Lab assay of single mutants.
Amino acid sequence: QNEKLANELKSLLDELNVNELATGSLNTYYKRTIKISGQKAMYALKSKDFKKMSEAKYQLQKIYNEIDEA
Rank of each mutant, 00 (worst) to 15 (best):
Q1M: 10
Q1S: 11
Q1V: 13
N2R: 12
N2E: 14
E3A: 09
E3L: 08
E3H: 06
E3S: 07
K4Y: 05
K4E: 10
K4R: 11
L5V: 06
A6W: 15
A6R: 07
N7M: 13
N7W: 10
E8S: 04
E8I: 04
E8D: 08
E8H: 03
E8Y: 04
L9N: 00
L9F: 01
K10A: 08
K10E: 06
L12S: 01
L12H: 00
L12I: 03
L12N: 00
L13C: 04
D14Y: 09
D14S: 10
E15R: 14
E15H: 11
L16S: 01
L16P: 00
N17C: 15
N17L: 14
N17M: 14
N17A: 14
N19I: 15
N19Q: 11
N19K: 15
E20P: 06
E20Y: 14
L21Q: 10
L21T: 06
L21D: 06
A22E: 05
T23S: 08
T23Q: 05
G24T: 12
G24N: 13
S25Q: 09
S25P: 11
S25G: 10
S25E: 08
S25C: 14
L26W: 05
L26E: 06
L26K: 04
N27S: 15
N27G: 14
N27H: 10
N27K: 08
T28N: 13
T28M: 12
T28K: 12
T28G: 13
Y29M: 03
Y29L: 04
K31A: 10
K31Y: 09
K31G: 06
K31T: 04
R32P: 01
R32K: 13
R32Q: 09
T33V: 11
T33Q: 15
I34K: 00
K35L: 10
K35I: 09
I36F: 08
S37L: 15
S37R: 09
G38M: 15
G38P: 00
Q39W: 13
Q39M: 12
K40F: 15
A41L: 02
M42F: 08
M42G: 04
Y43D: 15
Y43N: 13
Y43T: 13
A44E: 01
A44Y: 02
A44Q: 01
A44T: 00
A44I: 02
L45R: 00
L45K: 01
L45I: 06
S47L: 11
K48E: 05
K48W: 06
K48T: 03
K48L: 12
D49A: 02
D49I: 03
D49M: 03
F50M: 07
F50G: 06
K51W: 09
K52G: 04
M53V: 01
E55M: 07
E55D: 08
E55S: 06
E55C: 08
E55F: 06
E55Q: 11
E55A: 09
A56T: 02
A56G: 02
A56R: 00
A56D: 00
A56F: 02
A56L: 03
K57S: 04
K57P: 00
Y58S: 09
Y58M: 10
Y58P: 01
Q59T: 06
Q59E: 12
Q59F: 14
L60V: 01
L60R: 00
Q61T: 07
Q61G: 04
I63W: 02
I63A: 03
I63H: 01
I63N: 01
I63P: 00
Y64F: 11
Y64K: 09
N65I: 08
N65D: 10
N65M: 13
N65K: 14
N65H: 11
N65C: 13
E66A: 09
I67N: 02
D68L: 15
D68M: 15
D68R: 15
E69V: 11
A70V: 06
A70Q: 07
